[in-house]
Structure formats: C-alpha cells, structure tokens
Amino acid sequence: MGTSEIDTPTGSGPPIRVVLAKLGLDGHDRGLKVVARMLRDAGMEVVYLGLRQTTGTIVTAVEQEDADVVGISMHNAGHLTLGPMIVRALVDADLEVPVVIGGVVPDVDLPELAAAGVAAVLGPGAPVDEVVATVRAAARGNGGR
C-alpha cells in the first residue's frame, strides 16, 4: 500500500462507492466523519448514512446506491454481535458487498470477525493510506467474487 495509491483514482473505471454508517446506538461519529472525507479526497463516492442505522437501513442503502463496500464504525464493544449481524443481513439480501469495520476492536477479536465474513478491520489511528488501501482492496475482492 504505497502512498501513490492515495492520489490515483481506480484506473479508468467508475469510482468506488462506499456506504458509511454507525450501526446501533453508538454515537461516536468523529472517526467515521474523518474517514468519509479521506475516502472522498481519494476519489471515492461516499454515501454517509450517519447515526443510528439498523441492518435494514444499511441493506436498503447498499441496494439503492449500488455500493461496492460498506464501512461500519464501532466504538462500543458491540462488534462481535453487530459485525456478524450486518454481514449476515447483506448475505440474506443476496448482496455480495464486503464489510469493513473501523473503530475500537481489540486484536484478539480479529480472527472471529474474519471467520464471520468481515473483510477488514481498521483500528484507532489508522493512517489515510491504510484506510484508502483497505477499502480499495475490499472493493477489488468484491469485484472478483
């Protein structure tokens, strides 16, 4: 993930479309807002759903916006319950869209989230090139499936 990737839009294809949301009651939205601007600056199209979304509202948005990636922000230690839940909801709706989780997720939980089908996890302090590269990689993984 070289820094050159930041400034280069994804080839000649259409820009990556990302749905960003807070799932559940957690109101910590500082990180998600910063990520929204990072991804926009990197040439992606961001659909920012914001606070208090449910699996239902997220699935609907992914469907309507034809999203390539879903980014969910979690800071309240509910990721082991809510992470697999949103993956399952997307699968149930026949949407093969990768889920990236950002926020406070201890490393010990990463295998369980990966096993549940979460494409990637971005921790606190992840730099912009890691954020952009992770979302790009997730989007590519989606395209290849």
């Binding site: 009651l25 309240n76 509910g78 809510l82």
Partner: peptide, 15 residues
C-alpha cells in the same frame, strides 16, 4: 432504551 429493546442488541453492559 431498556435492555430488552431491539436497539440494545450487542450493547447491554458493554461500555
């Protein structure tokens, strides 16, 4: 929200 509310799923006692 009470602990038995749908919104509370995954967040009871966590933070």
């Amino acid at each position: 929200r009470d602990s038995d509310h749908a919104w509370a799923l995954g967040e009871v006692g966590r933070a």
